[in-house]
Nucleic acid binder design. Structure first.
Lengths: 235, 235
DNA sequence: TTTCTTAAATTGGTTAACCAGATTGGTTTG
DNA sequence: CAAACCAATCTGGTTAACCAATTTAAGAAA
């Protein structure tokens, strides 16, 4: 059993280097919003790396909204000044994989908001989807099966009903990591899951009644266990 | 002047189709966590698309933590059950570009949290960085220059000091879009910016004093204008 | 000189060939 | 019979060649 050095790290290191070089270039040439970067070919030649590596780096910066590449035209600096561009690229370079505690902390924050918004904004269809997710969860638990997935899908259904696409996206990005860690640390053991059914049901009823305050309260109750777990897990 | 149909949309459509086919395949073959997908070559052949398109789709699913590809080995289903996998892919396929309102709504939510956390957890170095960002902002405003970027960098510095890497990442992803829209809708006009200096300073002092409640209050004051703007912008 | 035309050069995107490492199954060896 | 070995094969990643749309600028026409 060898200790696994993630190969991705090396890749990431290369990409970060390229990103930093792109930043340096933008600074050196004093490029402003809307200005064009050199072609991918020239950049790859300039940096001494493959063109596909340059492409990946550009795609990453495009994801963060800092660059915008147009087919058959070029790659352009976004409508963001050089100050913000520099600051953000620096931040991006320093980004590291989120730890579990921050994930849970963020999830709680987001969900206390989504459940309120869902109570206010949910459509009939969305309410129905939440109910279906609830039933799927309850059924699984009653059969004594593991229901971590159904649990999280219930929460995702609420996020979708919140009508806030940004939060919904964020919830989607953190959920897989949450599920993995929950399974690993056995956060949702079966005895707890039984209590979870009623708690879920309470949340659902509050959303159905369109009572945001009650919904938030019920969600807080539901997260009570999570709080404890979150702060007992080793770093 | 032709109406621009974003080329990315078409690309996205293709990618979404591939993602949906991957989901169907996983369902059809009943793949479970840890199982291996067919090679990229076979998938591309199977789906009748180019291999690079398949790769992009896989990378997207990897970003959401649903797949994991290992070099010289294969692409594997993450440690997530098929139920969650299906639900999440369905959600991902439905994702659309976040609207400005949801961005602002989310930003306010996140920042009211980060400012409290920053007051609790900030190190001396982080406090210093916040101060520097504050001064850069004040200087720009006093010179009568536009300071949207410095404004947001101040807020990002707080996010960094919150010690929550997940929220920090989220703040980074929404900031460029925020800046673009602020510039477009002239949210931060210069007369407002002058008031902003004092508000920023108040927030900074609260963080310095390590008073989370006060910090949150000051941030709320700072967001008061934003609230109004947020709900006056047309859809 | 100005404007329109057009063809060559440049662009990001796509496809195909290639590479090094991991996997696998049959063979050998103890 | 089981473990160790090795080569053929398969893998994701990389590189290079190709494509179509776009841009550019030179040249023709006014």
């Amino acid at each position: 059993m060898k200790i696994e050095i993630l190969p991705k790290n090396e890749n990431d290191a290369i990409q970060k280097e390229i990103i930093s070089k792109i930043r340096d270039y933008i600074n050196y040439k004093n490029l402003e919003p809307g200005d064009k970067l050199p072609s991918e070919r020239k950049l790859s030649e300039n940096f001494g790396v493959s063109r596909s590596s340059v492409r990946e780096a550009i795609q990453t910066l495009e994801f963060y909204g800092l660059l915008k590449s147009k087919p058959q035209s070029g790659t352009f600096v976004a409508d963001i000044g050089s100050v913000a561009l520099n600051g953000m690229i620096t931040d991006i370079l320093r980004l590291e994989k989120p730890d579990f505690k921050s994930l849970v902390e963020t999830r709680i924050l987001l969900e206390l908001k989504t459940v309120r918004l869902a109570a206010l904004r949910r459509s009939k269809e969305e309410l129905k989807e939440i109910e279906e997710a609830l039933e799927a969860y309850a059924t699984k638990v009653m059969n004594g099966e593991d229901a971590v997935q159904e649990d999280l899908l219930f929460h995702l259904a609420i996020a979708k009903a919140s009508g806030n696409s940004t939060i919904n996206t964020f919830m989607l990005t953190i959920t897989p990591e949450i599920i993995t860690n929950f399974t690993k640390y056995h956060v949702c053991d079966k005895n707890i899951a039984f209590i979870g059914i009623q708690e879920h049901r309470d949340i659902y009823e509050a959303i159905k009644k369109q009572d945001p305050q009650l919904a938030k309260e019920k969600m807080k109750v539901h997260f009570k266990m999570l709080y404890q777990y979150c702060y007992n897990i080793p770093d």
